[in-house]
Computed example of a mutant assay.
Amino acid sequence: MSEPVWWPRAVAWIEANLDGRVRTGEIERVRERPWSTVATVPTTTGPVWFKANGPGLLYEAGLLRALGSLAPDRVITPLAVQVERGWSLLPDGGRTLRESAQDGLAAWERLLSEYAVLQRELVAHTPDFLGLGVPDLSPATLPGHLDRLLGEHELPEIAEQRPRLGELCAELGGSPVPLGLQHDDLHDANVLVDAQGRYRFFDWGDASIAHPFTTLLVSLRVAARRFELDQEAPEMLRLRDAYLEPWSDLGTPAELRRTLALTTKVGAISRALAWERALLGADESALAEWAEAVPGWLGELVNGPDLAARR
């Protein structure tokens, strides 16, 4: 991998922020994508991880610092962040849930339940997260985002459904569930299991302020593939209900399931926007490689059940 022009500055910043640790080997860039560069730093107390976000995801560094202060038992608290550059330096948090021996359905139920509890705990801090630059993808904003995307991508099937999609966004906007932070790419490879068996959520680069249930668009799809299950299988419904239970004071089971169905429909707009942010500033080869990401997610808007006919 060729060395980015900013890499020497990053190495100096890493060295200055190891918090008493001593580096024992070379800093290795282990992943380079248009949206981030990740490096591992061997030290006397174990590996430290460096992440440099691309221009569309700079807000993650400030968000990580805020989450480390607000929920230190549920996330990895960074050693240091450089907000303007989107840099973060984090201690090792253990193995991912996917890498662990406990990655079964029961672990996924716990993952989704604990994540929902975290979302509720963080609701009061939604204005602070917006102030950090976390994107506002509340239901009221989604039709405008969709109109802009349709102006940039020729997708006549979706354009035909635009009025109905607007109605679904409006219905979602009437949900009693408060807007809050949603991860948008939550699955077993973005959850760490530490030595005490605690789950810690990481990789918040796709996060937004939205209807909280939007997260499950990705989470339930990954789980269905992981366990080779249909979305309506009893095991999948238990995962859904494990997530919804912490919200049970805000609606009947039928109302919450309806709301979840809405978010997993119009949430495709959020996923398209996440990819758009991820590819901001990417070079031509990267844009060509990931060219279908944005229109591909928008295409999901015309797939699946007709929710307008289901109440």
Rank of each mutant, 00 (worst) to 15 (best):
S2G: 15
V5N: 14
W6R: 13
A12R: 15
I14P: 04
D19G: 12
G20A: 06
I27E: 13
E28S: 14
E28R: 15
R31F: 09
R33M: 09
S36H: 14
A39Q: 05
P42F: 02
T44P: 03
T45V: 10
F50Q: 00
Y59A: 09
E60S: 07
E60Q: 14
G62I: 03
G62L: 06
L64D: 00
L79E: 05
L79N: 11
V81W: 02
P91V: 12
D92M: 02
E109V: 02
R110Q: 12
L111A: 06
L112Y: 10
L112I: 10
E114A: 07
E114C: 07
V117G: 00
T126N: 06
F129L: 06
F129I: 07
L130Y: 03
G133H: 13
V134Q: 01
A140D: 12
G144S: 14
H145Q: 15
D147I: 10
R148N: 08
R148A: 12
L150Y: 04
A159G: 09
Q161Y: 13
Q161K: 15
P163A: 07
R164E: 10
G166V: 10
G166T: 09
E167H: 12
G173D: 13
P178F: 01
G180E: 06
L181P: 11
A195T: 11
Q196F: 10
Q196V: 00
R198N: 13
F201V: 05
F202K: 00
D203P: 01
W204D: 06
T214A: 15
V222E: 14
A223V: 08
A224G: 06
A224P: 02
F227G: 02
Q231F: 11
E235F: 07
E235W: 03
L239N: 00
L239S: 02
L239T: 04
L239K: 07
A242P: 01
E245N: 04
T252F: 08
L256M: 12
V266A: 01
A278F: 05
L280G: 07
G281T: 14
G281L: 15
A282W: 04
D283F: 12
D306G: 14
D306A: 15
A308T: 14
